[in-house]
Structure formats: structure tokens, C-alpha cells
């Protein structure tokens, strides 16, 4: 067993876990934050994307033990005081989901995309950057529209 301590959505957490515990298992089963999903469990679908120290990663392909001391943000950490994050709001406004399973990963990837690429994202860039996130319902059309709006609004534009 190993002791892991990290900050998840601003809150210090600590637990005694098996070394093989994946970050996504730690988040879902130990912390009971079930917004982060497991789709493929082979690092292809992106349903498990969270931010480690501000960068999008696949939490199904990261050991919890490797995140000792890290700052983790999950989908539950985006909204503040009952107000949705602009990217979440954009997905709601544009109906950027069908079944919703991939949505947490899509939104975490989208926020990371804006952090790296800025607030004016064209369709080609968004589609290319969503390479590691799969929507099994094939709902990409509205997802792309959502990301474009969310990106603008994260920059303050309405």
C-alpha cells in the first residue's frame, strides 16, 4: 500500500491505496466523484479526462501514486457557487451532448484546449484537438459548436 495526498478541486485529500490504483479509480471510488467516467479504459476515448496541474490527461492511464502532491481538477471542480463554468454553459446552450457519457471528458479537454490555443478557435482546430475524445453517439456537430462558444465566453465575450 502507498500513501497518496493530493489536492482535488481545491480540497486536500489523502488515502492509503494499492499502488495499482488508477487516478480514475481513486477519484470515483475513494473520493466518490463520479462525474469522471471510464469509457474504454484503454486511453482512447477520453471520457476520463481530468486536469493534473492544469493539463488534460487521461486518468485511466495514470497511477494515483504518480499524482502525489498534484493539483487535480475534475468536472465537479469547474462550476462555482451554483454557476456553471462557461464551457459547461455552452454545452447546455448548444445541446452539445446526446447520451452525456463522454461530456465530462469533452468539457475538460475543451477547457484545456482553450488554455493552450486561446479563445478564438476555428472548427478545424476544435475537431483536430478533440482527437482523443470519442462521442459514441457521434454528436460532434453540437460539441464543436459548444466548444467554440465556450472558448469565446471563457475570454469574456458574450
Amino acid at each position: 500500500m502507498v500513501q497518496v495526498s493530493m489536492t482535488v478541486n481545491g480540497k486536500a485529500v489523502s488515502a492509503h491505496v494499492e499502488p495499482r490504483t488508477l487516478l480514475v479509480q481513486f477519484i470515483r471510488e475513494h473520493l466518490r466523484l463520479t462525474g469522471t467516467h471510464v469509457g474504454c479504459d484503454t486511453s482512447q476515448c477520453g471520457a476520463c479526462v481530468v486536469h493534473i496541474d492544469g493539463k488534460a490527461v487521461k486518468s485511466c492511464t495514470t497511477l494515483a501514486a504518480s499524482c502525489e502532491g498534484a493539483q487535480i481538477t475534475t468536472i465537479e471542480g469547474l462550476a462555482h457557487g451554483g454557476k456553471l463554468h462557461p464551457m459547461q454553459q455552452a454545452f447546455q446552450d448548444n445541446h452539445g451532448l446526446q447520451c452525456g457519457y463522454c461530456t465530462p471528458g469533452m468539457i475538460m479537454t475543451a477547457v484545456d484546449m482553450v488554455n493552450r490555443k486561446g479563445h478564438q478557435l476555428d472548427e478545424a482546430t476544435i475537431r483536430h484537438e478533440l482527437e482523443g475524445n470519442i462521442c459514441r453517439c457521434t454528436g460532434y456537430h453540437n460539441i464543436v459548436k459548444s466548444v467554440a462558444q465556450g472558448a469565446r465566453e471563457m475570454g469574456g465575450a458574450k
Binding site: S43, I52, A56, V57, T61, D112, E131, G132
Partner: peptide
């Protein structure tokens, strides 16, 4: 290589 999330690790 891979996708943006894979490239971060």
C-alpha cells in the same frame, strides 16, 4: 504523437 492528453504524459 497520440492525442493532446497523451502528449501531456
Amino acid at each position: 504523437i497520440g492525442d493532446p492528453a497523451v502528449r501531456h504524459r
